[in-house]
Design a protein around this nucleic acid. Structure first.
Lengths: 239, 239
DNA sequence: CGAGGTCTTGAAGACGATCAACAAACGTGG
DNA sequence: CCACGTTTGTTGATCGTCTTCAAGACCTCG
């Protein structure tokens, strides 16, 4: 099976065979995690960065009250903590939301890439910059949209991202997580998540049963979410 | 006057004289903006990136309802839209919050830096990655903190960032923006911003008059905000 | 001095949180 | 395959936070 990071980068620019080989060889080890396992903890100083090969992970922070906020979802092909190569100390934890398989890339290897492969460096930089754009969009949703709008937006985003990673079909995608986790993503209580889901289902926009999310009416879902995939930067052009 | 970007990067790693010169020479033009002016609009495809030399700018998105959400504040030394060099199309606008002086750096120059200056490239990459960390912290505040906690957190963050940019003294800093803008930052209505400010002032945590924010009790402000500057990555070490 | 923008205050209402109880689903061991 | 315990999902009731609307005060700048 080919490395999903290569798929992700090739969606945005051409890669030479040498560059693909560099990426393939960068992974020194693969590891698996079960839902709820921490891949990395806040305060760690990892010496490798983690690439999601399969499953979903989340970045999160905990507050004094014990509340959790998830700040990002990572799908296959995402370099979860690529920034730890530059930041050194983790300012947040990373948890497996579903069963996960990940690849580890030593920071030394990344550093060598930045010395020898300027184009690949720009593409890796790009992938952190796209993450940043997703964060900004989430901020807009959190600050100015209703709970239903936010939920609809999340579904739209995950659908497009999973699709581009080859992990969704025409009808929907697997999302085997709890309503509480969904609340931690959207900044809502699990009770309210439940009610919002019922409304969206009542309106025929989505259904979500047995860990499988099905899209009922993409156009209206998209309208509810005011979703514009622009910020995901799924455009192929020279970088 | 020395380029504040150099100050910002030197807070996090050593720069050689050649690297400093590269950064100085990168700015081809400086421009000024008045409060409310757009530096860049959503959908633009700029050919330069913008470095704040003086004043405050904000990244923002507008929703269908006309609501605005500010997703980032940029202080002197920040490279506002460095990512446009990789992303090409702007997924958000940038507005001057106060009178601003900025420097323009052509994307061609940035590209050449990535080809010839790996260490400087890593530092510029780092600065986008720190922005990302700030976004994540804002998400936590938006999702899981009260209006007062959020306000307190914003004040703490701005104080530390402006201080490290040499734009704040022991007592506080200039913040000549409207309460409505503050609401667009925090995802609150301007009415509620007003009330939250009154409470914080009543508690002796801050005062804000005539565009000048004064910190009354840093320890309690910090506690209210659960503020930990860790995510700003103000650590000097080799990158 | 007047006009537009900004700040302030009050009142009403919407949205989402919290609490509590129960139902359903899941997994584990017998 | 069933029994049981634990986790997850569902529902109702109540409460608090923040929004919205509206009106008046203040301020700044032409």
């Amino acid at each position: 099976m080919t490395n999903p990071l290569i798929l992700k980068l090739e969606a945005r620019d051409d890669l030479s065979d040498a560059e693909k080989a560099s990426l393939e060889n960068a992974i020194t080890e693969t590891r698996t995690f079960r839902p709820g396992d921490d891949l990395v903890r806040e305060g760690d100083r990892p010496t490798t960065s983690t690439l999601v090969l399969d499953g979903l992970c989340a970045r999160y922070k905990l507050l004094g009250s014990g509340r959790r906020q998830i700040t990002a979802i990572n799908v296959p092909g995402d370099f979860v903590d690529l920034q730890s190569f530059l930041l050194h100390e983790m300012d947040h934890g990373i948890v497996a939301l579903t069963p996960c398989r990940v690849g580890c890339v030593p920071h030394d290897t990344l550093r060598q890439l930045t010395e020898a492969e300027p184009h690949l460096t720009r593409l890796l930089w790009l992938s952190t910059v796209v993450d940043s754009g997703i964060h900004r969009q989430w901020l807009v949703a959190m600050g100015r949209m209703s709970a239903q709008g936010r939920m609809a937006h999340l579904v739209c985003e995950l659908y497009v991202r999973l699709r581009s990673a080859g992990c969704a079909d025409d009808l929907g995608f697997d999302l085997p997580i709890t309503q509480e986790a969904l609340g931690d993503i959207l900044g809502l209580s699990s009770v309210h998540v439940n009610r919002v889901l019922q409304e969206l289902r009542g309106d025929g926009l989505i259904t979500w049963r047995g860990g499988r999310l099905t899209i009922g009416d993409w156009d209206r879902l998209r309208a509810t979410a005011e979703f514009d995939p622009n910020y995901l930067n799924l455009i192929h052009e020279p970088r």
